[in-house]
C-alpha cells in the first residue's frame, strides 16, 4: 500500500521570549498508509495541530520534508483531494447550514446544491438545513463541519480533535461517521488526546510528546502485553509458587491470586491446578489499554510529569 502521509525529520521551530528557540515539532518521521484511520495522539501542547498545519501548507516547516498523497507539502493541488476539520472550528454564523455548504463548495469552483443537501442528510442535519449556524449546538456544528469536509469527496481527511468538548451522544455520532469514511476507502488522520475514543476506531497510532514521536505502530501490536489474573483455591503454597514463575503471586485469605502475562501458557496452569484437585475461582483478563501505553510512554519520556499527563489523557 502507498503512503498517504510521509514525513522526514519534519521540524517547526518557534522563538519565544522566555525560552528562546523551541522545537515545537522535532524531527518528526510519520508514516500513514492509505485507507487507514491513523490516530495522532499526544497531550495538549505536544505539537499535533502544528504538525497538521504544516502538512496542509498553512504554516511552513523550519526544516525537514513531508509528502501528502505523494506530493510535497505546500503543493496546493493536493487541496483538491484532501480536507481538514480544525480543532474547535468556528463557521460564519450568519449562514444557514445549507448556505455554509454551498459556500465551501464554491471554493472548489463547484455549484451543486443537490450534493450539499445529500451531505446534510448524511450527517443528519437535513431538518436543520435552514437554521443559521449560531442556532446549531456544538455537536451539530461539528457534524456540519464533517459534511463540508466531504464536499470534494476527499481521499484523505485531517480531523483535529474531532470529538473535543462534545457530549457522549455527539461523540458516538462523530465516531460512526469517521468509521464510515474508512469503509468508503478514505484515509483518516485524527489528532486527539481522548484515548478511549481513538482506541475504538484507529488502526494505527503515533504518540507524540513534546514534538517528538515516542511510539508509532499498529494498535494491536502496541497493546500487546495484557495480563491475566487467576484466582485459585485448594492448592498448597509450594504448587502455587511453582505456577507463579511467569508472573506474581498474591496471598488471599482463602487462596492465591496469580497475575501473569497473557502470552504465558494459561492452559498449562489450569491443567496443573485441576490435576492437583484445586479449583479455579475466576480468570480475569486485564487488557492493556491505550491509556496505559500512553502514560507509560509519556512517563518514560519525562520522569515525574506523568500524573498530570495521565489526567489529561483520561476521558
Amino acid at each position: 500500500m502507498a503512503a498517504a502521509i510521509e514525513t522526514k525529520k519534519l521540524t517547526k521551530t518557534y522563538r519565544s521570549r522566555q525560552l528562546g528557540k523551541i522545537n515545537v515539532v522535532n524531527e518528526l518521521d510519520l508514516h500513514v498508509e492509505e485507507g487507514e484511520i491513523f490516530g495522532f495522539l499526544g497531550p495538549n501542547g505536544a505539537g499535533k495541530t502544528t504538525t497538521i498545519k504544516m502538512l496542509l501548507g498553512i504554516i511552513y516547516p523550519t526544516h525537514g520534508e513531508g509528502y501528502v498523497l505523494g506530493r510535497e507539502i505546500g503543493d496546493m493541488d493536493v487541496h483538491r483531494v484532501i480536507s481538514y476539520l480544525p480543532e474547535r472550528p468556528y463557521y460564519y454564523e450568519h449562514m444557514t447550514g445549507f448556505e455554509l455548504l454551498k459556500f465551501y463548495d464554491s471554493l472548489f469552483g463547484n455549484h451543486d446544491p443537490d450534493k450539499c443537501q445529500r451531505l446534510l442528510e448524511r450527517v443528519n442535519l437535513a431538518g436543520d438545513a435552514s437554521k443559521t449556524i449560531n442556532q446549531y449546538s456544538k455537536g451539530m456544528q461539528q457534524r456540519v463541519g464533517l459534511a463540508q469536509s466531504l464536499l470534494n469527496d476527499p481521499k484523505l481527511l485531517f480531523l483535529d480533535e474531532p470529538t473535543g468538548g462534545l457530549d457522549p451522544i455527539a461523540h458516538r455520532e462523530i465516531r460512526d461517521l469517521i468509521l464510515s469514511f474508512r469503509d468508503e476507502g478514505r484515509t483518516v488522520f485524527i489528532s486527539s488526546h481522548e484515548l478511549s475514543e481513538v482506541e475504538l476506531i484507529c488502526d494505527r497510532v503515533a504518540i507524540i510528546h513534546k514534538g517528538e514521536i515516542a511510539r508509532q505502530g499498529r494498535l494491536t501490536e502496541l497493546l500487546k502485553g495484557g495480563r491475566i489474573e487467576i484466582t485459585l483455591q485448594g492448592i498448597d503454597e509450594g504448587l502455587a509458587r511453582k505456577l507463579a514463575t511467569g508472573g506474581t503471586l498474591h496471598n488471599l485469605s482463602d487462596g492465591y491470586m496469580l497475575d501473569m502475562p497473557e502470552e504465558e501458557d494459561v492452559n498449562a496452569v489450569v491443567d496443573t491446578v485441576r490435576s492437583a484437585k484445586g479449583s479455579i475461582v475466576s480468570m480475569v483478563p486485564r487488557k492493556k489499554r491505550l491509556e496505559d501505553l500512553f502514560v507509560e510512554t509519556v512517563r518514560a519520556a519525562t520522569p515525574g510529569a506523568a500524573p498530570k499527563l495521565a489526567a489529561e489523557g483520561g476521558v
Binding site: K53, D77, Y84, P89, Y92, L107, G145
Partner: peptide, 14 residues
C-alpha cells in the same frame, strides 16, 4: 482568531 481562515485555506484557495 476564529480559525475560519483554516477552513478556507485548506481548500484550493490561494
Amino acid at each position: 482568531e476564529r480559525r475560519t481562515i483554516y477552513t478556507i485555506l485548506c481548500k484550493p484557495v490561494q
